[in-house]
Design a protein around this nucleic acid. Structure first.
Lengths: 252, 252
DNA sequence: TCAAAAGTGTTGAATGTACACCCATGG
DNA sequence: CCATGGGTGTACATTCAACACTTTTGA
């Protein structure tokens, strides 16, 4: 087949027009029993005034995860973050940024309920927003409150990943403070999955999985009722067999 | 904090030095009962003469999955491929390509046992190589037969993803020809996971999952013994509950 | 004393695992 | 007839789901 590219020059990267590379962050937390996502209001074009995922350009000598951590620090003011960070996916469709060809590597962050983030240098302000309404409108045309760029899709992919990972990893503990009760952990699952779980069976499943959580040695009565044992996240990396999502419960 | 970047120029992508963006392909198949990966021998610098994953630079107006499909077509000569293609992960550590800053989006392809691939335009030749030895040496220093760049790590990530996905998706069928027997499908699982599965229970599990496979209406005696029913891949997207890997069996 | 929440016991259903057994073909 | 591999029946162990019940606090 006739190749439009001359083979000699096709192998020299200097002959290709430049791409810009950015990182975008899907930062999730659980507040008041529902899933929230960290958003910024864009302070400059394009999409000025619209809400977007935090993120920015990768620097020339910066590794991708370092860029993600830097952007997160700039938006939240948190230095040593007790959060989980993993690569989500990469989005590079031509035209997704009207300025030029931009390839964006998205990262997923699961964090405990951090203090209200301060405004970063790149954004007019930052805030926690409930994820539900943003997911519901992900496939609509770009309406008033819609996210900039293709961020609604990135957010949907991030929430899907988080929901799936709760099934077979102990990542739900990263949504909790360092010491937490089994009931608090259960409320994380209920918030992320949007369903009810049986408190008794959940308690047995979690405490019955070796190394999933370890007793912290003290109790708390926050929330009222009988004092609950406090736990820390354990060293287990996988939950086998997985914890299965059930259909929305009959009660409530 | 003092930011080394001037905020005004930090938002203009034209002020950032260019990145090159490539796609790399982890193409897996099952041949002779073992997992194989498609490799090319590099025909130009850097790493000339070393084996590598097929891949190449993304063109200016080309979407990422299109670039992956184009590179696969150029290496294998297959136009309409009956294979599964999904994004794997993105690798962008500074220095991974000695020429310049290159961010590579890796794609995972699961394919049936295709005819021997022809040499592509970008490679001296292409061949199927057993995956096992390449995985075993993934953490060694770059020895003689080692892969170029960080491709050993990308390959390991791809094989991990494939192994995990067989558990809860019907993707094993993409390793098979269009019409296959349950035993042939079982041999795919055994090759990818490197363990033995009980033929009776496997048969029941597969045929008992609605929409996972559908009868093709004919039988075959390839392999000898009683004629086996032929099946096609069904419309099911998920395998619930998942098929669990067992430890290497006692027999054999 | 009551309400609320933590934690335990028990039971029937469903599922996974192991393996005996029969079926259909080629040699 | 026998070897080979496809496909089915059955029994045991394990796990899950539902819910009654007890424990321990605050009001």
């Amino acid at each position: 087949m006739a190749d439009a590219h001359d083979p000699a020059s096709a192998h020299d990267p200097a002959n290709f027009p430049p791409f810009a590379v950015t990182v975008d962050l899907v930062v999730l937390t659980v507040r008041d029993g529902t899933l929230h996502v960290l958003l910024v209001e864009r302070g400059c074009q394009p999409f000025a005034g619209r809400r977007a995922l935090p993120g920015g350009f990768v620097r020339p000598e910066e590794d991708l995860p370092d860029a993600a951590r830097r952007e997160l620090r700039e938006e939240t003011g948190v230095e040593a973050l007790p959060a989980h960070l993993e690569q989500l996916a990469t989005y590079g469709t031509p035209g997704r940024d009207p300025r030029m060809r931009v390839v964006s590597v998205a990262y997923l962050v699961l964090a405990p309920d951090l203090p209200v983030p301060r405004a970063g240098t790149d954004a007019a302000f930052a805030e926690w927003a409930p994820a539900g309404p943003l997911l519901a409108g992900a496939d609509e045309a770009t309406g008033q409150g819609r996210l900039a760029f293709d961020h609604a899709r990135i957010l949907a992919d991030g929430v899907d990943r988080a929901r799936a990972k709760l099934e077979y990893t102990p990542l739900a503990t990263t949504f909790c403070p360092q010491r937490f009760t089994i009931a608090e952990l259960r409320r994380v699952y209920e918030a992320v999955w949007g369903c009810r779980l049986d408190p008794r069976n959940f308690h047995r499943k979690i405490t019955g999985t070796p190394e999933f959580v370890v007793e912290a040695g003290s109790t708390t009565t926050r929330g009222g009722g009988r004092p609950a044992q406090l736990y820390r996240a354990g060293p287990a990396g996988w939950l086998i067999p997985p914890l299965l999502r059930q259909r929305p419960g009959s009660g409530q």
